[in-house]
Design a protein around this nucleic acid. Structure first.
Length: 518
RNA sequence: GGCCCGUUCGUCUAGUCGGUUAGGACGCCAGGUUUUCAUCCUGGAAAUCAGGGGUUCGAUCCCCCUACGGGCUACCA
């Protein structure tokens, strides 16, 4: 037995769903919602369902459903029941369930909890405009205004039937009861109470014959025996409406429990995180890359930017949840074990791209040399070099700890595979003295004599050389580094020299000196 | 505008019977290692717990008000 906050037993078996609409790539906020659902399901040995909420044909984007499934799979999230896998409550696409909703909306009409509304888009627009003109009021189709609009509450039954028969377009709206208190028990926020006087008569069924989210979500959650609805905070305002629907259908005592997750906010300023923020500040807002099929617009992804899926999961899980301990790096197994809704915060979190990188660095450090090799391979191929594996592994050991994103593997190591073409002008200015050229050439001459070339012998030689010539270590080493790397970066000089070998070492000196002293 | 939710270091956060030097992490600063640049290590600055009222011997913690922030307010989800 397991008890949540307010002594509510978690019914067994747990069944939760992630219910995105296929309107484009999945925002990381959505990924996090899916992740929390996944963790909750796994933790309680429950079932995770993917339900595609595609009741808005206008916003349908081809490929989006596939994107959602694949990008989530990349994160390690798999569904037990879904459109592609099927399950006992198939179909899992709402567009394929339209007959079901018709049956349920009829029940609401018969019971007097819903009514036909014949107002056209244009008529409602006029209402909105007149409300706005009258002291900037906002028009709502609700218990106050419905009495003066064209619907089955104001029009006679025979007239309604005539209109229906004539094929007059209509929508079906919920009839919100007057002046009642509706309480939503939220696992994260506690009880949220709303007076029905503030609720409007939301459209339940559209003129295109498909339900809106509100109806479809309640009917499907009931039919699919969902026990917990874990979704974003943007749904909190409509939760009372959903509770009312459960009540009208007579399902209130088996209604799922709600948990409304706080939002992910932009790093600077206020408001929720958007693609725009990512583009502006230079970090991805989507798990994997997506190219919009119609506009061609590119949505950059974490995977393509060089993040590990493990790290992304860890970054996201911490945006709203914490373990209550000082552990900060988790495997999926550990998350499943430790996750709980109780430890999800109430307030939104600003996304911190710097911390995200740091997390990725941590996970990268835990990868084996072999795994890192595999990640570096594409870069080697792209540059047309094919060094022996033994050589690459030596390099990886030297540069590993300076890698934050996967491409850094190449950025921090390319000079082991390719000679520098340019030399950093600022560094040159700073370290290249009048005597340097002669000094380096003298050193190269002595190095050429070295029979056994490795980091120890080279180090010894350096020591001798500076003692004899009376220069400081830096006067020799800094120019050498510039010659080897083209800048002032990279691992220790001796390690670097040993790996590239004597021949290459001398060659780089020769070529570099020639270029720099021209 | 209306309704709802929120508010602890710059950021993510701990703090769940009201009594803590308010803890950790990222970032920042300083020192050390690396004769480079990063990494790494050590140390440091950084939160009058949004403000004001209560309740209490005592409030970050309970209540109220205000401010600020956010969400929703479509025949979108």
């Amino acid at each position: 037995m397991y008890y949540q906050k307010n002594q509510q037993m978690i019914p067994n078996p747990v069944r939760v769903r992630f219910a995105p609409s296929p309107t484009g790539p999945l925002h990381i906020g959505g990924v996090r919602t899916a992740l929390y659902n996944f963790l909750f399901a796994r933790k309680h040995g429950g079932t995770l369902i993917l339900r595609i909420e595609d009741t808005d044909q206008n916003r349908f984007v081809p490929g989006a459903e596939q994107y959602i499934i694949e990008s989530l799979a990349w994160c390690g999230l798999k569904f037990d029941e879904s459109p592609e896998r099927g399950g006992p409550h198939a179909p899992y696409r709402q567009s394929e369930r339209s007959e079901i909703y018709k049956e349920y909306i009829q029940r609401l009409i018969v019971n007097g909890h819903a009514y036909y509304a014949f107002d056209t888009e244009a008529e409602l627009e006029v209402m909105r405009a007149s409300f706005k003109a009258d002291g900037n009021k906002v028009f709502q189709y609700d218990q106050k205004t419905r009495k003066s609009l064209r619907n089955s509450l104001t029009v006679s039954d025979s007239e309604v039937n005539a209109m229906l028969k004539a094929g007059t377009p209509y929508v079906i709206r919920i009839k919100i009861p007057e002046n009642q208190l509706v309480v939503v028990h939220d696992l994260i926020r506690g009880d949220v109470t709303v007076n029905t006087a503030n609720l409007d008569d939301k459209v339940l069924f559209k003129s295109d014959g498909l339900p809106t989210y509100h109806l479809a979500n309640v009917v499907d959650d009931y039919l699919m025996k969902i026990t917990h609805v874990i979704r974003g905070e943007e749904w909190l305002p409509s939760a009372p409406l959903h509770v009312l629907l459960y009540r009208f259908f007579g399902w209130e005592d088996i209604m799922p429990q709600f948990a409304h997750l706080p939002l992910i906010l932009k790093p600077d300023g206020n408001g929720k995180l958007s693609k725009r923020d990512g583009d502006r500040l230079g970090f991805p807002v989507f798990p994997t890359e997506w190219k919009d099929p119609t506009t061609g617009e590119l949505y950059s992804g974490y995977r393509e930017s060089g993040y590990l899926s493990n790290a992304v999961v860890n970054i996201l899980v911490h945006l709203g949840w914490n373990p209550g301990t000082e552990q900060e790096l988790f495997s999926m197994e550990e998350l499943i074990q430790q996750f709980s809704l109780e430890r999800v915060g109430k307030h939104g979190s600003k996304f911190d791209p710097e911390k995200a990188k740091w997390f990725n660095h941590q996970y990268l450090q835990r990868k084996s040399d072999e795994e890192l090799y595999q990640m570096l391979k594409p870069f080697l191929e792209h540059s047309g070099v094919a060094p022996p594996g033994e050589y690459v592994e030596k390099v990886i050991r030297l540069v590993k700890d300076r890698v934050f994103l996967v491409p850094d593997l190449w950025n921090a190591a390319w000079f082991f595979f390719i000679r520098p073409r340019d030399y950093d002008a600022q560094v040159y200015q700073k370290i290249w003295q009048p005597v340097t050229t002669e000094l380096i050439q003298g050193f190269a001459k002595e190095t050429a004599q070295l029979v056994d070339f490795n980091k120890e012998t080279l180090h010894e030689l350096v020591l001798h050389f500076i003692a004899n010539s009376g220069v400081k270590m830096g006067q020799l080493m800094n120019p050498l580094r510039l010659l080897m790397v083209g800048s002032n970066q990279g691992p220790g000089m001796m390690d670097l020299a040993e790996v590239i070998g004597k021949k290459e070492f001398l060659e780089r000196i020769r070529i570099g000196v020639e270029k720099l002293t021209k």
